[in-house]
Nucleic acid binder design. Structure first.
Lengths: 130, 130
DNA sequence: GAATAAACAGTAATGATTATCATTACTGTG
DNA sequence: CACAGTAATGATAATCATTACTGTTTATTC
């Protein structure tokens, strides 16, 4: 029934499965365009929303810039450099451990936990010293 | 030199100091407008950005909706209900405890840590049962 | 290989946020 | 107190990410 195959979605999935990448919607768009020059940015957004709802991917809000997407849904945190905007995985694994307590306190149903660090990455720290 | 007094900024500050509120820029705009009907939405955004840079307030990215702001900068987490959009404080206090390890792993300088839970608040869970 | 509906491309619309610029109003000095 | 200097403002245009719409294509079922 529901989900029907499409090469565009397949290409988007492939892009999100590359290791250690956290692409924005338009980065995905540009990458997939190499193979499917006619893909529409709307198609990218629609599929990202669907995959997110399906729990297949996770999105990272950066605040000032476009949201980034991560095909790795294992328990890990993110570090966003406020200088260069790069996103780094922090494999601390402490995220979901916080859920039980938080759920008790809120009285609701917690479905997801996101831990985001912001600051300067090692590269940008070096730049500052100069 | 630097920061000069302004009544508009004072009014924005006052709005952010009210307990347990997490207003969006336009909610602050509407509230301050009662006292200063001519305040501009741009003034609200400019002051929010400055206060954020000064570490005086914290902003909470909601993903799909407008960013929310919190005058309470003490170590606590947030719970965003994906149904009604409300933001709840979770006084878990586990955020900054994660920083040292994460800093070591990243090799950079971590300035901030934000822990956000998403799911359904107690009110919305009740709604679902019906 | 036709019928059906999901998915698409292309693009307009929206909403949040930022930038611009002429004007206003704090603040220190004579 | 008048005034000069300049930070902050109001109004609004511009930008950017994201969503919505519409007519067309294409995967799937028979």
């Amino acid at each position: 029934m529901s989900e029907r195959y499409s090469r565009q979605r397949e290409a988007i999935r492939k892009e999100l499965k590359k290791e250690n990448r956290h692409p924005t919607a338009s980065e995905i768009y540009e990458a997939v365009r190499e193979e499917y020059p006619h893909i529409s940015i709307g198609t990218v957004y629609r599929n990202l929303t669907e995959m997110k709802n399906a729990g297949e991917i996770v999105s990272i809000e950066t605040g000032s810039h476009a949201a980034r997407h991560d095909g790795n849904t294992s328990d890990h945190c993110h570090f966003i450099c406020r200088m260069c905007g790069n996103v780094l995985d922090i494999c601390d694994g402490g995220c979901s451990a916080l859920i039980p307590d938080a759920e008790k306190e809120s009285g609701g149903k917690i479905e997801n936990c996101s831990v985001t660090f912001t600051g300067l990455c090692s590269e940008c720290v070096k730049m500052m010293d100069k």
